[in-house]
Design a protein around this nucleic acid. Structure first.
Lengths: 247, 247
DNA sequence: GCAAATTTGTCCGTATGTATC
DNA sequence: AGATACATACGGACAAATTTG
């Protein structure tokens, strides 16, 4: 159960990697060796210091790296735990890239939206086969929620939209696609406001296109599904093009 | 040009975020405000300490987080610079997930390969339109390199394979797809050996299927291209299925 | 080639904030 | 409320790597 002991004398000739990297690798090895799950507790900082033969500073910096990757998760005054292994690092990295890219700020967003549409369009062929009635009803529930929340707080609108597209892509049975799709959505929500890209100027039209998608799914009509997708993403493309023209 | 000054007295009632997070945000703001590009130098640690009003430990931990996201890059004894904004964080995060997932180790890899194939399959339709002769020749060059390197060092084989698929997806004009595809390849190469998935037991067959893809591209035959893709990815699926059966 | 200056890497000690019992 | 365990933050000191004169 002991954490892997660091070699006291590193390789003399090889270009040594920083100690904090060895510590980070040691923590990852500890998680793998003990087959820990997300949420499981890790040794305290002091315990890791002693086990890995490193100072608090090095251990803390290693933990910070792993935290950024969502491999570990820290709760102040409570302890250190195995992280959720989410796409948070991808979101933050892509969001910053979108904010930084100077010459063509909007290409990043356009690429993002294109991949999302590509994922969902690949669903069309599998529509006839697997797609339970319950899943269709949950999709319908999202659209209904968007209608009700229309007049109310507009904050929940984007969340419902996010949930809709996540649900739409889950029947693929490919968790990676769902998480990437959700991550891209998060990046878009973060970056778009900074580029004067209005995300939801026409909520009514958005609701309508979502309803058309649900109807196509319910009718098991792959062609209509693809057409609905095109209608849904057309205004997004148009807004990006307009913003690019302004910039 | 000064780095953003941190508020000396934080919000008293609100749940304050850690100081290192404020420092990290300050560094990101500095990069954005001065419109720095990847490779541009950042202030030294001491300068950041003074500018942001934080100790060196906090500044270093913030830098560590940004380093993990490839937003900044540090060279020992030299300085701190704006990072390449690569997909390294995604690669490390996904690779660890693949190594950790216990019940179904191979689903992660299967999802990965499926997305890669999805990207490339979406190329088939655009083949006829844009795809320069030069790009075709570069693809052919990859295949030739795989043939020559066959008897020699097998290390370059995987690199050439990676380059081939990166080239294959570039005509889409979507940088994100190319980088995701390459990142997934990197994850596969890292994870597969740990799961007893033999990546290249039949190099000859791999070369042949790549050649068939190039031939299909040269003939501008979208259907043949799709068929060649299926032939190329079939053995990968088979190997994953075999490994899953063993596990 | 050597030495000095600059910058990041690592360590230690201490004090503070936070959550749990 | 008090006590304990833990992460957060600070400051100083020295080591290692890189560049420059």
């Amino acid at each position: 159960m002991a954490v892997e002991q660091r070699a006291t004398v590193p390789e003399p000739k090889a270009a040594r990697q920083p100690l904090r990297q060895e510590v980070a690798d040691g923590i990852k090895s500890y998680i793998l060796r003990n087959k820990l799950r997300p949420g499981d507790p890790l040794p305290t900082e002091s315990a890791l210091c002693e086990a890995l033969g490193a100072s608090r500073s090095s251990v803390r910096e290693a933990i910070r790296v792993l935290t950024a990757l969502d491999i570990v998760e820290v709760r102040h005054g409570h302890g250190t735990y195995v992280g959720r292994l989410s796409m948070s690092a991808l979101v933050e990295s892509l969001a910053f890239r979108g904010l930084l890219s100077p010459d063509d700020d909007f290409q990043v967003l356009a690429d993002l939206v294109e991949v999302r549409e590509l994922f969902e369009r690949s669903m069309a062929e599998r529509l006839v086969h697997g797609l339970s009635e319950e899943q269709v009803e949950r999709l319908q529930g999202c659209v209904d929620a968007m209608r009700e929340g229309h007049a109310g707080e507009g904050n929940g609108f984007v969340d419902t939209d996010r949930a809709f597209h996540t649900l739409l892509v889950t029947p693929l049975g490919n968790d990676l696609i769902g998480q990437l799709s959700a991550a891209f959505w998060d990046v878009y929500v973060i970056v778009a406001p900074h580029l004067d890209v209005f995300t939801h100027e026409h909520e009514a039209a958005t609701i309508a296109s979502h309803q058309r998608i649900v109807d196509a799914v319910r009718a098991r009509d792959a062609a209509e599904f693809a057409a609905a997708l095109t209608e849904h993403y057309a205004p997004v493309r148009r807004r990006l093009a307009e913003a690019r023209a302004r910039g």
